[in-house]
């Protein structure tokens, strides 16, 4: 087991199959698909409620949803912990703040990269909540249930990402991958 964890990477098909089996486990034990972004929504909602209770009182969101610290919230904590353990044991923790591909196109500025990451993360999560799912909730858990919404979402987001990536990096950047 230790030996296996010391490896920096496992074959992608094996990892994929592992996630597939993990989703059986999640359905069987928690009656819940693997998903990440509901936890972010609930955290934001709980913050909203505690920071501006009068404002939250008027928001119909709280009539529809009851935000909580639940299974999915702990799932997100677990992803962080699991990745931490895995990278610690394999010594795979030396990534620079500015990824090389980004640096070749947009320069060495850390601030620039952080601002872009912040904005990208913000738009991405906003989109995930409008669509009610992300790469895990729709892209894996939804498509494996053969949900029509999830297949459409995955097709749209993947093509948009491909288009955006080529706009950002072009054919020239492609050589640097």
């Amino acid at each position: 087991m230790k030996n296996l964890l010391q490896k920096k990477s496992w074959p992608p098909y094996l990892v994929g199959a592992g996630i597939g089996v993990l989703s059986w486990f999640a359905f069987l034990t928690a009656d819940h698909p693997l998903g990440i972004t509901t936890a972010f929504e609930h955290t934001a909602a709980l913050l909203d409620k505690s920071v501006a209770p009068a404002f939250a009182e008027r928001n119909s969101y709280f009539d529809q949803e009851s935000p909580k610290i639940g299974w999915e919230w702990m799932l997100v904590v677990g992803v962080f912990v699991g990745s931490f353990i895995s990278s610690k044991i394999s010594g795979d923790r030396n990534a620079p703040a500015v990824p090389p591909l980004w640096e070749q196109r947009f320069g060495t500025s850390e601030t620039k990269r952080y601002i872009a990451a912040f904005i990208g993360g913000m738009l991405m999560l906003f989109g995930a909540r409008i669509a009610q799912g992300c790469t895990s909730g729709h892209g894996i858990s939804g498509t494996l249930q053969l949900a029509a919404s999830s297949w459409l979402f995955t097709a749209i987001f993947f093509s948009t990402s491909i288009g955006t990536a080529f706009l950002l990096f072009g054919r020239e950047g492609r050589k640097n991958v």
Binding site: I36, T37, F40, V76, V79, F80, V81, G82, S83, F84, S86, S87, D92, R93, A95, P99, W102, A116, A117, I119, G120, G121, M122, L123, M124, L125, F126, G127, A128, R129, I130, A131, Q132, C134, T135, S136, G139, L152, F153, T154, A155, I156, F157, F158, S159, T160, S161, I162, G163, T164, A165, L168
Partner: peptide, 25 residues
């Protein structure tokens, strides 16, 4: 949602789950 998500993810370079995992890394 798909348009926002795809645009944002390509800029960020991680999806929500892998973004959290990248923090762990």
């Amino acid at each position: 949602g798909g348009l926002f998500f795809g645009f944002g993810m390509a800029i960020f370079g991680y999806c929500p789950g892998t973004g959290v995992a990248a923090c762990g890394e």
